[in-house]
Design a protein around this nucleic acid. Sequence first.
DNA 1: TCGTGGTAACTTACCCAAAAGTCATATAAG
DNA 2: CTTATATGACTTTTGGGTAAGTTACCACGA
Lengths: 204, 204
Amino acid sequence: MVRPNAGTKGVPRLDRETQILDIASEQFGTQGFSATSVAAIADKAGISKPLIYNYFGSKEGLYEACLDRGGALLADEIERIARGDAVGIERGMATLAGMFTLLEPQPYLWRLFFDATAPSTGPIADSIALYAERIGKLADEGVTELMGLAGNADPLDISAMTAVWLGIVDSLMNWWMEHPDESADQMMQRCLRLLTALFGGDAE
Amino acid sequence: MVRPNAGTKGVPRLDRETQILDIASEQFGTQGFSATSVAAIADKAGISKPLIYNYFGSKEGLYEACLDRGGALLADEIERIARGDAVGIERGMATLAGMFTLLEPQPYLWRLFFDATAPSTGPIADSIALYAERIGKLADEGVTELMGLAGNADPLDISAMTAVWLGIVDSLMNWWMEHPDESADQMMQRCLRLLTALFGGDAE
DNA sequence: TCGTGGTAACTTACCCAAAAGTCATATAAG
DNA sequence: CTTATATGACTTTTGGGTAAGTTACCACGA
C-alpha cells in the first residue's frame, strides 16, 4: 500500500520530542489537560498521533514530560532567587521579576501546575505534587519570613497567606496571557506601580 | 419487561430540581465543567441520567441553571455591599466579609464563574459573561477608587489590579474549600490578620 | 369502594461522536 | 539490509444524549 507521507523526515528523536513538548506545553497550559487532545497536538506539530504515543506512551505520559521540563525550570529559578538576600515584600518582588523574565516567551507554563482538569491521582498528580511542593515550600518560606516580621507565626495564617500569594502570581500570569504584547519588564514595572498604589509610597 | 426501580418516587419536580442543582453546583464548582459528567451527578443524586435531561435539557442547560441560581446570589450581595460607603481597602474587606458569610455553606459556588473549562461560546458563555461582568464591574469600580486614592488612573494598571483582586478572592475560596472547618467569621478574622501583617498596622 | 384513565416521575437500554490508544506497514538513511 | 522515524486505518473507551417504556399517584364517576 502506498503511504505518501510515511518514512522518516530526518528529524532526530530528541529534536522531535522537544518540538512536541513545546507544542504540548502550550496547549495544556492554555486549554487545560482535559480540553487538549493528542490529535490536535499532532496536527500542530505536523506529525501523526502514533508518533507521539511512540515517544511518550500516553497522554498522561506526555503531560508528565511537560511537567518535568517546566517544573525544573520554574523551581530552579525560584530556588535561585530564594538563595538571594531579599526578604519580605522585596523577596516577593524579586521572585516575580524572575518569573516574568523566565516566562516571557511562555507564561502558560505556570498553569501546568495549577490545572484543575489534570488527573488528581496517579503519576501526574504525584509529579504535580512534587513541583507544587518544591515551589510551595519556597513560597511558604518567604511568607513565613514576611509574617514573622509582623509578629505572626500562626501556621494556618501562613498557609492562607501562601495560597493568596500563589493566587496573585497565578492571576498575574493569566492577565499576562491575555495581554501578550506586554514585555516582562513592563509587567514588572506595572507590579511595582500596583504595589506603590497599595502602600501609598515605595515599599523599601 | 420488569424494571424494578422505575416509577415515581414521589419527589415533586421542584424539590428534585433543587436537589440536582445543589449536587451539580458542587460538582461543577469543585471539578470544573468539563471534568464533571452528568452520569456522576445522577449517581450522587440517586437518580438516572435521563431525569436530569428531562428537567434541564442538556449538560449546558444544567450548568446554566446553576449559574443563574448562584450568580444572582453572588451579584446581589456584592451590589448590596457596593452601595455601602466603604472605600478602598475597606470596601474590599467588606466585600470579602459578605462573600464569606454568603458562601459559608458552599465556597465552591464562586468557582462557577471562573471556570476555564466551561464553553467559551453559546448561552453558557453569555450567562457567565453576564454575571462576571456584573461582578467584575463592581470589582473594577472598587479598584478604580482605590487606585484613584493613590493617584493612579492607568486603565491597564486598573485592569491588572482587578485581576489580582479577583485572584485573591479566588485563592481564599479555594483555601477555604480545603479547610472546611473554618467558619465565615474565622475566615474574616484571618484575612484581617493577613492585612495587618502586610501593612504593619491596622488599615484604617 | 372500586375500577379506570390521565399525568407526573422515573428507568433501562440503547445510539453516536469524539478522543484515547494500537497494529501493521512503509520509507529514508547509514 | 537493518534500524529509526514515521504513518493510515483500525479498535476501544468515554460521555453526552435519546427512545420507549414502566410505575405511582390522583381525580372522578358508578
